[in-house]
Amino acid sequence: TFEVERIVRKKIVHGNTSYLVKWKNYSSKDNTWETEDDIRTKYGDLVDDFEK
């Protein structure tokens, strides 16, 4: 199971928000862009903290 360590960046393309996710126990080269809906479902607190 993958676990988010932190959110690195945010991008908005054509009105759709995605977050660059750093995965726990993986290197930064393994970071992936994930949709806001996918990340918010399980890691809403991390998204809220990133947006502060």
Score class of each variant (00 low, 15 high):
residue 3 E to T: 06
residue 29 K to T: 10
residue 40 R to W: 05
residue 50 F to M: 02
residue 15 G to I: 02
residue 28 S to M: 11
residue 34 E to K: 05
residue 16 N to R: 13
residue 27 S to P: 15
residue 50 F to D: 01
residue 5 E to N: 00
residue 51 E to A: 04
residue 8 V to G: 00
residue 27 S to C: 09
residue 17 T to A: 09
residue 15 G to C: 06
residue 26 Y to F: 13
residue 11 K to F: 04
residue 22 K to S: 05
residue 2 F to V: 11
residue 27 S to A: 09
residue 41 T to M: 13
residue 8 V to S: 01
residue 2 F to P: 14
residue 11 K to S: 07
residue 35 T to F: 09
residue 33 W to I: 00
residue 1 T to V: 14
residue 43 Y to K: 03
residue 8 V to I: 14
residue 1 T to P: 13
residue 19 Y to H: 01
residue 20 L to M: 06
residue 35 T to Y: 09
residue 9 R to M: 14
residue 2 F to S: 13
residue 22 K to H: 05
residue 40 R to Q: 04
residue 31 N to E: 08
residue 12 I to L: 07
residue 3 E to L: 06
residue 52 K to I: 09
residue 33 W to K: 00
residue 47 V to F: 05
residue 42 K to P: 03
residue 44 G to N: 13
residue 26 Y to I: 12
residue 19 Y to Q: 00
residue 29 K to V: 10
residue 21 V to K: 01
residue 52 K to M: 12
residue 25 N to V: 05
residue 12 I to A: 04
residue 47 V to K: 02
residue 33 W to Y: 01
residue 31 N to R: 05
residue 12 I to T: 11
residue 26 Y to A: 13
residue 1 T to F: 14
residue 18 S to C: 15
residue 50 F to R: 01
residue 20 L to R: 03
residue 26 Y to H: 15
residue 46 L to R: 03
residue 49 D to C: 09
residue 3 E to P: 05
residue 10 K to V: 07
residue 48 D to C: 06
residue 24 K to S: 05
residue 42 K to Y: 12
residue 27 S to M: 08
residue 31 N to V: 09
residue 19 Y to G: 00
residue 2 F to T: 12
residue 32 T to W: 00
residue 22 K to V: 07
residue 14 H to R: 11
residue 15 G to N: 05
residue 6 R to P: 02
residue 13 V to T: 09
residue 30 D to W: 15
residue 14 H to W: 08
residue 49 D to S: 11
residue 7 I to W: 00
residue 13 V to L: 10
residue 24 K to C: 08
residue 13 V to R: 10
residue 46 L to Y: 05
residue 3 E to V: 09
residue 31 N to M: 14
residue 14 H to M: 13
residue 23 W to C: 03
residue 27 S to D: 15
residue 39 I to S: 02
residue 50 F to A: 02
residue 6 R to Y: 14
residue 4 V to S: 01
residue 38 D to K: 12
residue 27 S to E: 13
residue 50 F to S: 03
residue 45 D to W: 13
residue 37 D to Q: 13
residue 11 K to Y: 05
residue 22 K to F: 06
residue 19 Y to F: 08
residue 22 K to E: 07
residue 8 V to N: 01
residue 32 T to P: 00
residue 31 N to I: 08
residue 16 N to D: 08
residue 6 R to M: 15
residue 38 D to I: 10
residue 31 N to A: 10
residue 25 N to F: 09
residue 32 T to I: 02
residue 47 V to W: 08
residue 45 D to P: 11
residue 44 G to V: 06
residue 29 K to M: 12
residue 26 Y to E: 10
residue 37 D to L: 12
residue 28 S to Q: 10
residue 24 K to M: 09
residue 15 G to E: 04
residue 34 E to F: 14
residue 48 D to L: 10
residue 26 Y to K: 15
residue 37 D to V: 11
residue 35 T to N: 11
residue 43 Y to W: 14
residue 4 V to Q: 03
residue 16 N to V: 15
residue 40 R to I: 09
residue 33 W to T: 01
residue 46 L to N: 02
residue 38 D to E: 12
residue 41 T to W: 10
residue 10 K to Q: 04
residue 33 W to D: 00
residue 37 D to W: 12
